[in-house]
Design a binder for these strands. Structure first.
Length: 548
RNA sequence: GCGUUCGUAGCUCAACUGGAUAGAGCAUCUGACUACGGAUCAGAAGGUUGGGGGUUCGAAUCCUCCCGAGCGCACCA
């Protein structure tokens, strides 16, 4: 419809261009007015042309409307309003006929070709295996997964990747922490390492080791390594189970260490040197970030010979692009926001297209527990795990809570409120609408003979019916916008409105017991609505229940 | 101090990136079908979009200066 309006407007402009040559190339914007009083679609064309034509916008609008040649079966009216907007209304006939395209498309309805066949890599979670996933990781995990789903619905081929490092200092401390707990189990008093991991899960891992080895590890030189290995394996299993429970699957786990093994790290340093962007000073290797507008240069390799994390980050992103991805998305918390420009600079400097790197930054979640802000620390074992949260409220509420707000705003997560899984919880509003429809459809199956194919949608002329149909037709656009911005909350806003339109329709119009032709037309509308809700919830990774 | 992301109804947040009278939910108040699921629906009330200045036909959105918050600013990840 948007395309059609653009065409008609373009033709009108061309016909007017004999008199006003500047019109022919004007850019045409079609948007949906915020208020329904302003019609179903509007263009600000006359306003944008006012300056160039030196005419009042309303006067220009009049000329455009006069030159407009619209098909009555598609557009029922074109009016000038306000400062010079042209408002269009869609013909009922057209709206009604679109219902069948929704039900026919079924599970495919809402898919677009915006990113058709684009290869996308999305990296998210990427927590090092030092402890269980906490609600602090939740926003990252759920955003990443849902953005992946949105992009799949826009036609992209998406790979999900989890990047981790099991070689750093933190991991060594983890091994030492386990060893200390293990020693305790062996009856040997040991000092707990400074800054060690205090969580109970460390004791569980130590206990497993004790069951397996008794006290035979105590005198082995590689005891820390064994403890570290066991902890990593155990924690990763735990993390994967949590992800699975949240309806998240990863396609790959990428170990930072492989970048050392492959020589990728060294190669980056050499190539930066070749470009004169890396140099030695004070025993360290530096990256000339001042070339890219930074105040200071940045250390790539410490004087100890160990790289900083920035170097493998650069190598990793180059590796992503080497694998042929058209878009490489990173889901980062606000703490990483200052570091990625260096990565992009390096990637560009080495001849890659840094614009393929798409960094999505979300603001941190403030956990509110017992009415107060709660600072989490994996090391100090102050945390609420995602598993604990899901025990309380289930995966659907967990996902929904992280998705319902714009990633760009600070999210306050009140544990008590989330646990209050009652009617306050907005996810139920959507699920209830779906369950309610399914319930009616079950009953309709028994009483109404004709199927969708026989239904006559032209009987649906009630305001509530028309408004619902209009909204259902916006679904593909909602998915598309949501995917383009990488902002799932836009889809949630849309679905809430869809559910509201449905509930309104439900109250205004009866279905069962109406005259059979009308009843089957309304059943068709129910099918279309359920389809939209179902597809939308599927994108969000949330269940669409048949009954609750 | 510098950089960065924010500040919208009592609370939690929207507003399709510059469009028309800034919208929802929760909380508060008033109402609704002896029928399809009341986990619903209709209505009331609630605002100087943190504050000042600027840009233009038009600003919550863009520029600037204040105020307040989060996060960065290591040869830590």
């Amino acid at each position: 419809m948007k395309v059609y309006l653009e065409e008609v407007l373009r033709e009108a402009l061309i016909s007017l261009s004999a008199e006003y040559p500047s019109l022919a190339g004007a850019e045409i914007q079609i948007e949906k007015p915020r208020s329904p009083e302003h019609g179903d679609a509007a263009t600000n064309l006359a306003l944008t042309l006012a300056g160039a034509m030196k005419m009042p916008p309303r006067k220009i609008a009049e000329k455009i409307v006069a030159a407009l040649n619209t098909d009555d079966s598609l557009i029922s009216s074109a009016e000038i309003a306000g400062p010079g907007f042209i408002n269009f209304r869609f013909a009922h006939k057209w709206l009604q006929n679109q219902l069948l395209t929704i039900t026919k498309a079924s599970g495919e309805y809402g898919k677009t070709t915006d990113n058709k066949d684009k290869k996308v890599l999305i990296e998210f979670v990427s927590a090092n295996p030092t402890g269980p996933l906490t609600v602090g990781h939740g926003r990252n995990a759920v955003l990443g997964d849902t953005i992946a789903r949105l992009l799949e619905w826009s036609g992209a081929l998406v790979d999900r990747e989890y990047y981790f490092n099991n070689a750093g200092r933190q991991m060594r401390v983890l091994g030492e922490s386990v060893l200390a707990r293990y020693s305790e189990l062996c009856g040997k008093a040991t000092d707990f390492p400074d800054g060690g991991y205090e969580g109970d899960y460390i004791k569980d891992i130590a206990s497993l080791l004790f069951d397996e080895h008794q006290n035979t590890l105590l005198n082995r030189e590689d005891a820390v390594a064994i403890c570290k290995g066991a902890a990593e394996a155990q924690i990763f299993e735990d993390i994967q189970n949590t992800l699975k429970r949240m309806n998240i699957r990863m396609d790959a786990f990428f170990n930072e260490y492989s970048l050392y093994e492959s020589g990728a790290i060294e190669s980056v340093v050499e190539r930066l040197r070749d470009k004169n962007l890396a140099y030695d000073a004070d025993g360290a290797v530096w990256f000339k970030t001042t070339e890219f507008g930074k105040e200071k240069d940045t250390v790539l390799i410490k004087s100890s010979g160990e790289p900083t994390y920035r170097l493998p980050d650069i190598a990793y992103h180059i590796h992503k692009l080497d694998r042929g991805y058209d878009i490489a998305i990173d889901i980062f918390g606000a703490d990483h926001i200052a570091t990625y420009p260096d990565v992009v600079s390096a990637v560009n400097a080495l001849g890659y297209d840094g614009s393929k790197i798409d960094v999505q930054v979300y603001q941190f979640v403030t956990i509110v527990k017992d009415g107060k802000p709660f600072k989490m620390s994996t090391r100090k074992a102050n945390f609420v795990t995602l598993d604990e949260l899901m025990d309380e409220v289930g995966p659907d509420v967990t996902r929904f809570f992280f998705l319902m707000r714009s990633p760009g705003t600070h999210l306050e997560f009140d544990i008590a409120e989330a646990k209050e899984a009652g009617e306050k919880n907005p996810v139920f509003y959507l699920q209830y609408a779906h369950a309610r429809i399914c319930s009616i459809l079950r009953k309709a199956d028994e009483t109404i003979n004709s199927g969708d194919a026989d239904a006559d949608p032209s009987l649906l002329n009630h305001d509530s019916e028309i408004n619902l149909i209009k909204h259902l037709l916006e679904f593909p656009d909602a998915v598309s916008v949501s995917a383009r911005h990488r902002e799932p909350h836009r889809l949630i806003t849309y679905l809430n409105e869809a559910a509201a339109h449905f509930h309104k329709f439900y109250h205004d119009c009866r279905i069962l017991g109406e005259e059979e032709k009308l009843a089957s037309a309304r059943v068709l509308l129910l099918h279309a609505t359920a389809n939209v809700l179902h597809n939308g919830l599927t994108i969000l990774g949330i269940e669409a229940p048949d009954q609750m």
